[in-house]
Amino acid sequence: MHVSLFIPCFVDQLTPQVGLAVATVLERLGHTVEFRSAQTCCGQPSFNAGYWDEARGVASRAVEVFAGAEAVVGPSGSCVAMMKVFYPQLLAGTPHETAALDLAARTFEFGEFLVNQLGVTDVGARFPHRVSYHDGCHGLRELRIRDEPRKLLAAVRDLELVECDEPESCCGFGGLFSVKFPMVSTAMAEVKAGSLARTDCDYIVSSDPSCQLQLDGWLSKNGKRPRTIHLAEVLAGEVA
C-alpha cells in the first residue's frame, strides 16, 4: 500500500522523530510512504475554539492536499479524529463535502491502521521495559480505538504492559483549554499523570503527541518520572 503521512503540527515542530518512526514501521512492513509537504495544520485549534469559518478554510485546503491518496495515516488520535469525524460535519453543504467524506474513509490513526487495515499486530519490535498506555480521548471516544494499541504492545518482545487506575481519564490538555483554564487543565494532568506514575512504569506510551506534551510537561515540572513515548517509537525500535 502507498501511505500518505499526515503529520500533526506538534510532530512537525517538536517531535519529528515520531513521524519518522511511523514511516520506518510502515516501510518495514513492506509499504511505501510519502509526505505531501503542502500539508499544514488540520484546523482543529480554530474548530475547537468555535471559529468554524476559519477552520473550514484550513480544512478544505487539507482535503485538497490529500486528494487521491490511497491511505492517509497520522500518529495522533486527535488530529485524525478532526479529519475523520469532524471534517464531514464542518464541510457539509460546501463544495468539499464529498471529498471530505472520501478523505474520512481513507484516513486512519497509526495504531488502528496497523491492526485493522493491515491486519498486523506483531511488527517484530523489542522494547525491554514496563509501560502503561495512555488513551487519548479523541482516539478512545471519537475513533473508538481501545484495544488496537494494546494488541500492538502485547506483541512487542520483552515489554510488560500495566494498566493505571484512571485508564479512561483525560490528561487535561484539550488544546486552547490548557491555557484558557490552566488551573483546571493542570489538576487533570496531576490526576492522570499521578495515576500513570503509580504503575511504576518506565514509559507512558501514547498515540497522541498533544497528550504527551501535557503529561511530560507536568511530570517534568514536578520532578517525577516516568516520561512518555509515542507508540510509533516503541514499534520502530530495536528489531527483535
Binding site: Q13, L14, G19, F35, S37, L213, G217, K221
Partner: peptide
C-alpha cells in the same frame, strides 16, 4: 499560563518536514 505549571520540551534542531527532505 502553560509554563506556570508545566514545562515545555526543547525544540528539535529541525522540523519533520526538513528531516523528511
Amino acid at each position: 499560563a502553560w509554563l506556570a505549571t508545566r514545562d515545555l520540551p526543547a525544540a528539535p534542531r529541525q522540523s519533520f518536514r526538513s528531516a523528511w527532505r
